[in-house]
């Protein structure tokens, strides 16, 4: 599931900026380190982040689905085209430094996916809107960000409706890859066209409700930004700065 998953963990209750800051921190850390072992420590940290929010099970599947094709590609490309030394895997000469590079890039991808899917799962869009509104972020920006974050759950219901409707018209799902490919048209085309047909109404409805009004909106229940929240975000900042200082200064000195 890609989107918000209600829960009662400390991360769910935290100020919405805190999980976002942690996810961003993990992303920066994944690029701050370059040894395969260190990258996978960041992956473990991202998994711990997900587990502490109680969403590891929910984010693991989409993360794996999104990462697997890239992992396979990375392993093949770097393993076959990388330099010496090589190890023989059956008839194939596999590059050791290439394999290490694949581990680094693949690990970064895994860490980023885990971190941001966890942030998506723990930050309630409604609370994020309130938090941004309370900070005086212009509504246009709030809307763009939050509607992007919620696009998957919003499309799910419509996809379900269209799948149901086309099956009832005799469309068979599954079967050979070619049959699956053919079934895509009747599913994707109405998804896009019916969404487009409604864009006008949506824009109108938002306009009527003051979505385009200038001036500051009222935040009704701004989430509390506790001392712990600020401390966590500060710690993330310090860790990231330290890691990059080590990377650029430590390596040179």
């Amino acid at each position: 599931m890609i989107g918000y998953v209600p829960g009662a963990s400390a991360l769910h209750r935290a100020h919405p900026y805190t999980p976002l800051a942690i996810a961003t921190g993990l992303l920066l850390m994944a690029f701050a380190v370059s040894a395969p072992g260190a990258v996978w420590v960041v992956v473990a940290a991202a998994a711990l982040f997900a587990a502490s929010a109680g969403v590891l099970g929910t984010v693991l599947r989409p993360a794996a689905i999104l990462a697997l094709p890239t992992w396979v590609l990375l392993t093949i490309l770097h393993g076959l085209l990388g330099g010496a030394p090589h190890v023989m895997l059956g008839p194939v000469a596999f590059s050791v430094p290439g394999g290490e590079r694949a581990l680094v890039f693949g690990g970064r991808l895994a860490a980023i996916l885990l971190a941001f899917l966890t942030a998506l799962a723990t930050v309630s869009p409604a609370r994020l809107v309130e938090a941004m509104t309370a900070r005086g972020v212009p509504f246009g920006r709030v809307y763009l960000l939050v509607s992007t974050l919620t696009v998957v759950p919003r499309l799910r219901a419509r996809v379900r409706q269209i799948v149901d409707a086309q099956q009832c018209r005799g469309l068979r799902l599954g079967g050979s890859p070619l049959a699956r490919l053919r079934a895509l048209g009747p599913l994707v085309v109405p998804l896009v066209l019916s969404a487009l047909a409604e864009v006008d109404e949506q824009a109108l409805a938002l306009d009527v409700r003051g979505g385009t009004a200038r001036g500051r909106r009222t935040a009704l229940e701004p989430p509390e930004d506790s001392r712990a929240d600020r401390a966590v975000r500060l710690a993330v900042l310090v860790a990231v700065v330290a890691a990059y200082a080590w990377k650029f200064l430590g390596a040179g000195g």
Partner: peptide, 12 residues
């Protein structure tokens, strides 16, 4: 034959 309430969304 099943006709959905919002069947206008299934045309392609």
């Amino acid at each position: 034959g099943y006709v959905f309430q919002h069947a206008d969304q299934q045309l392609f």
